[in-house]
Every structure is written in structure tokens, then in C-alpha cells.
């Protein structure tokens, strides 16, 4: 699925390493939106924060979280090269307010800022985050859940913006969904 992933550098769109305010956020959002529209075949956009020094909540809200919200379920946005505690905290505040999860990739794992997933879907999310793509049936096998129950949990994770869902064909020829980790 690597052909479905593209990396973009946020600073190419901000022209500065200190981003604040709604006005700046909307300006960058529109530039990112144009890039997404110019790449219709891409499913996951990795947004690299390399070189970024500061970002406030208002900017994060307008530029990043609104983009993820607009494409929820259709395309995924994963933040990379972000370790600054203040920027992560500000992204968290913006994502929480919008109830929109935003994925962050660190060296060996993907995690989320934003709303905390409910207990009922937490295990399914943890399972999905261990692999680039997963099927509800495989999760059902690894637990004592029914396939219907596992499918419902994965569907909910996709609806809430934690995973991306694509229709696939099962070995028996029926419809089956593949769930993709964002990042």
C-alpha cells in the first residue's frame, strides 16, 4: 500500500517554523487541501513537522485537525517528526475540541491525539495499530469475539476517524473490508 502514501513537509506550506493564529491556519489549510486534491489516488498523507519549532492551538485546529475532519473515513493524515511536548499538547487540545483523532507516528509506533477511544473499541484499535492493515475476521480469531461483533468495532473505529476502511474481496468471493492504520 506504499503507493497510497505520500509524505509532505509542513514547512513547505507555512514558510515559517512558528505558526500561530486562525488566519495562518486557514491559509495553510487551503494549501494542504489543494495538495490533497491534486493527489486523488493517495490514501494516507504523512505530514512531516521536521524543522517546525512552534505551533499554537488555533493554528493546529484550522490547518491540521480540520483537514483530518474533512476527510474522515476517506483519507488519513499522520503527523511525523513531531516530538515537541508543547506542540503535541496543542495538537491534542485542538483534536479533542473537534472530537477528531489525529495520528502521530514516532519511531516504532502510531498513536493518537484527540478524543480517547471508549473501552469497547480500545482492544480492536490496539490490534489494528500493530499492523499496516487488518481484517475484523482476523481480530475475531485472535479474541473470543464473534465476527459480527469484531466487524462492528472496526466499523466504529473507521467512522470515528481512527482507521481507514476499503472494500476488498474475501477468499470466498464475498465482500470484505480491509482496515488501514493511518501512518
Amino acid at each position: 500500500m506504499n503507493e497510497n502514501v505520500i509524505v509532505l513537509h509542513l514547512m513547505d506550506y507555512t514558510n515559517t517554523n512558528e505558526c500561530w493564529g486562525r488566519e495562518k491556519g486557514v491559509d495553510v489549510y487551503l494549501k494542504l487541501l489543494a495538495f490533497v486534491n491534486a493527489n486523488p489516488g493517495i490514501m494516507i498523507f504523512k505530514i512531516s513537522f521536521k524543522g517546525m519549532k512552534r505551533m499554537d492551538i488555533s493554528f493546529a485546529s484550522e490547518a491540521i485537525v480540520e483537514l483530518a475532519y474533512k476527510y474522515r473515513g476517506l483519507k488519513g493524515f499522520c503527523i511525523t517528526d513531531l516530538t515537541d511536548a508543547d506542540m503535541i499538547e496543542n495538537l491534542q487540545a485542538a483534536a479533542e475540541k473537534r472530537r477528531q483523532p489525529v495520528s502521530i507516528r514516532t519511531e516504532d509506533k502510531v498513536s493518537f491525539v484527540g478524543p480517547t477511544p471508549s473501552k469497547g473499541i480500545e482492544a480492536a484499535l490496539n490490534y489494528a495499530l500493530q499492523r499496516a492493515q487488518s481484517k475484523a475476521a482476523d481480530f475475531a480469531k485472535s479474541t473470543k469475539l464473534s465476527i459480527a461483533n469484531a466487524s462492528a468495532k472496526f466499523k466504529k473505529l473507521s467512522d470515528l476517524g481512527y482507521l481507514l476502511r476499503r472494500e476488498d474481496m474475501s477468499e470466498t468471493g464475498g465482500a470484505e473490508y480491509l482496515y488501514y492504520r493511518i501512518g
Binding site: 512558528e18 500561530w20 493564529g21 486562525r22 488566519e23 512552534r54 499554537d56 493554528f59 508543547d86 496543542n90
Partner: peptide, 17 residues
């Protein structure tokens, strides 16, 4: 440093808004 920057950014943005 970081928290103060965010405080000023949000308060000054509020002025413009």
C-alpha cells in the same frame, strides 16, 4: 518558554480576531 509562547500566540490572535 513553550507555554508562554502559546499563551501570547492565543492572546494576540484574539486581538486580531
Amino acid at each position: 518558554e513553550g507555554p508562554t509562547w502559546t499563551i501570547f500566540a492565543e492572546l494576540i490572535d484574539n486581538v486580531y480576531s
